[in-house]
Amino acid sequence: MSGEHDSSGRSSGFSSPPCYASEIAPDYFDPMAVDDDQARDVARWRNAERNRLRAERQELSVADRKRIELELRNRLRQLLRDQFGGARGKVFSAYWPIKGEPDLRPLMAELHEAGVKVALPLVEIKAAPLVFRRWKPGMRMVRGDWNIPVPPQDAPKVTPDIALAPLVGWTADNYRLGYGGGYFDRTLAALEPRPFVIGIGFEAARLETIYPQPHDIPLNIVLTEVGCRFEEMNA
C-alpha cells in the first residue's frame, strides 16, 4: 500500500492500513478504512514480520555480519560528510545495538573524536517521547529500559539534529518497521524542529509495504549495506 498522495502525486507520509492486508494488492489505499479491526489485522501482520526478519538477521554468519557492518559504517560516514560536512558540532543520535542490529559503535567513537556531539536515546517515562543524553567513549553506562545500556542521569540532555533509526524492516518509500512500542514515531512527532532521520538496516529486510497507519512517519533516508534511498519529498 502506498501512502496518501497530494495533487502532485507525491506521498504525504500518512495513510491507513487495509483490513486483511495480505489478501489485497500492495498499492491499495482506502482513506476511509481506519477502524479497530484493521488496526488489529495490521498489528498481527507486523508482529509476524518482525519475528521473521529478526530470526533471519540472527542467522547471519559472523563473517557476513562483520562485512555488512563495515559497509554500513563506511556509507554512513560518507553520508554525513556529503550531507552535513561531517556533522562536526551537530548533535548526532545513534543507538546501542541489541537483538542483532548493526553495530556502529566504532563509528560513534570516531565521530566523537571528530567533534560530533554523539547522543543515545533512552526511555525515562513509559509511553512518552524518548530523551536524548550525550555519550562519550568509555563513559559509565547504566541499564535502561529492556536492559539496554544508556548514559547516566548526569549526562547532559540534548536535542538531535541527526538521528539514526535501527530498522527491523523497511520499505522503498522509507517507512520503518520497528519493535512495535511506538516510541520512535512518538518522539519524532514531538521534536521541533524534527531531526534528519536515517534508517539503518539490512538490505534483506526490505518489505513491499508496512501498511502505514496515520501515526507512522517516513524517514528522510534509508541506508543499507548496498546504498541509500532518500524520502521522496526530499529527493
Rank of each mutant, 00 (worst) to 15 (best):
K157Y: 03
A25W: 07
A94H: 04
V91E: 10
A39H: 07
P17N: 11
F84H: 10
V197C: 14
P17S: 11
Q78C: 05
F184M: 11
N147C: 05
G199N: 10
G13L: 07
I125E: 15
R206G: 03
G115F: 02
Q153W: 04
L76W: 02
P137C: 04
K66Y: 00
P102C: 12
E101A: 11
E203P: 03
Y211G: 03
V168T: 12
L130N: 02
G181P: 10
R73S: 15
M139D: 07
H5W: 04
R52C: 06
V34S: 07
D173Y: 01
V91P: 11
K117Y: 07
E69Q: 07
P160Q: 03
R65Y: 09
N47V: 03
G86R: 02
P18F: 06
P160D: 02
R81W: 06
P18T: 06
P152K: 12
L80G: 01
L177C: 09
L130Q: 05
Y20M: 06
I98K: 08
R57N: 09
P149Y: 07
G85R: 04
L72E: 02
E4C: 08
L219F: 09
P31I: 10
R105C: 08
R206W: 00
P129D: 10
P149G: 03
V118R: 08
K117G: 03
I24T: 12
L60V: 04
D154K: 04
L104N: 09
S11I: 03
P195L: 08
I148C: 02
L70V: 00
R50I: 06
A48R: 13
E71V: 01
H5Q: 15
I217R: 06
A235W: 10
N234L: 14
E113K: 14
P152V: 03
R52F: 06
Y211I: 01
R133H: 01
D173T: 01
C19S: 13
P121T: 06
T159K: 13
E208S: 12
N47Y: 06
G181Y: 10
P121I: 09
G138S: 09
I200D: 05
P129N: 09
P195A: 09
G3M: 05
R54L: 15
V62Q: 13
R46P: 04
E203W: 05
P129Q: 12
P17A: 13
I217G: 01
F14R: 15
R67T: 14
L122R: 15
P166Q: 00
W146L: 15
E110A: 14
I221C: 13
R46A: 10
A127Y: 02
V62H: 12
S61M: 03
I198K: 04
P166I: 00
E59K: 15
K99S: 11
P106C: 05
P129I: 09
Q213M: 14
P152G: 14
T187D: 07
E203N: 13
I125L: 08
Y28V: 13
A128G: 03
V222L: 03
W146F: 13
V168P: 02
E192Y: 07
E192A: 11
Q153A: 15
I210A: 00
R105H: 08
A128F: 02
W45P: 01
G199I: 04
A127S: 10
D30N: 14
K136F: 00
R81M: 02
P195K: 07
Y179M: 11
R50T: 04
I148P: 01
D103Q: 10
V34A: 13
R50N: 08
A204M: 13
W135V: 05
R186E: 04
P149L: 07
